[in-house]
Simulated scan of single mutants.
Amino acid sequence: MSKEKLTLDQVLSLDLPNIILFAAPVMIGLVALEWFLSYKEKKDYYDGKDTIAATVIGLVNVAMSAGLKVITFGVILFFYNLVPWSFPNTWWSFVVCLFWLDFWRYWAHRISHENRFWWATHVTHHNSEKYNWSVSFRLSWTQHIKIIFFIPVALAGFHPVMFFIVHQLAVLYQFWIHTEYIDKLPRPIEYIFTTPSHHRVHHASNEKYLDKNYGSTFIIWDRMFGTFMPEEERPAYGLTKQVKSYNPLTLNFHEWADIFRDVKNSSSLKEAFAMVFTRPSELQEMKAKFKEKERVKV
């Protein structure tokens, strides 16, 4: 027997609270505390302008998420209704949903580092040379298109409300791992869950740390797919080619502007395609190849 299809009005009528919005004052309070401790202990963990920029970016992102709630629900609901099966509304379904969602968060995150188009939706999160709780606010204003990576969660039969709750909890989990104040945790925790130590590696610009530790809630995916790296020396944070700006608009759109410029300057469709979808770490090598081809033609 097939399940009863849901309508968007039915889901939205539940008027689910925006958990992240309610948690925002607590997170801002913890940022203020960490900033104070950093100042008192003379640790170079914060930059005032950088933190203000991150907070502005985060607040705009929360507002955008609320405004796009109907579209987000609509996409998930459409694909949920396509399949005849569904998970029961039980506690263990939430646990399974968390693991399945986190699996796709891993791949969405990894692709966002390995493909320039998707990197443009994520680079904002990495363009700070500091590492503190305010960095968790730096989520790109164009990241919302990554909803397509979570369609498999709906196709698995998880109710859109379950998806909405679990997804927000997964996003909130990211907050506490953005700090230098928490050292490595006991081995069982470090083996299964993504911790501040793991995520410090992910935010590093050190060559050996690049493109490592993509896990959101669980680090097990990195261990399974060969992208795990333990923290050794203290990382240097930021991009390999740092953007020197505190302007939220620049921080959100500098990579999109670079892509547009590179496509405009391309001499062929093949080159234009490569400028959009190449791996960011291979971009300069790719540009050099096309430049050499043009030189040989001449």
Rank of each mutant, 00 (worst) to 15 (best):
F277Q: 12
P84A: 09
L21N: 15
N61D: 15
N252C: 08
K43L: 10
F277R: 06
K270N: 06
D102M: 00
Y45P: 05
S128K: 03
I219Y: 01
G226P: 11
E231V: 12
Y181V: 09
L30C: 09
F290V: 02
N213E: 02
F277A: 14
I57G: 00
T72N: 13
T179C: 13
K241N: 11
T51F: 04
P235N: 09
G58L: 02
T240V: 12
T72K: 08
L82S: 06
E255K: 07
Y173C: 01
W35T: 11
I19F: 11
P25F: 03
P188H: 05
K264C: 03
V83W: 07
W104D: 03
K49E: 07
A257P: 04
V161H: 05
W256L: 15
V75R: 06
E282F: 13
V75Q: 03
A156D: 00
K184G: 03
M229R: 14
P248E: 09
Y46Q: 12
L283E: 11
Y237H: 02
I148W: 12
E255T: 15
M27T: 03
W256A: 13
F87R: 09
R116T: 06
E180T: 13
V60T: 11
V166T: 11
V56T: 12
K42E: 10
W256S: 02
T194R: 13
H113K: 14
Q242R: 04
P25K: 08
T121C: 14
L12Y: 01
L12V: 03
E285V: 10
A236W: 12
F78P: 04
S13E: 06
Y209D: 14
S13C: 07
K293D: 08
Y181T: 08
F78Y: 15
E232R: 14
V153N: 00
P152K: 12
K208V: 14
I57D: 00
E271C: 02
W35D: 11
N252T: 01
P160F: 02
S136Y: 00
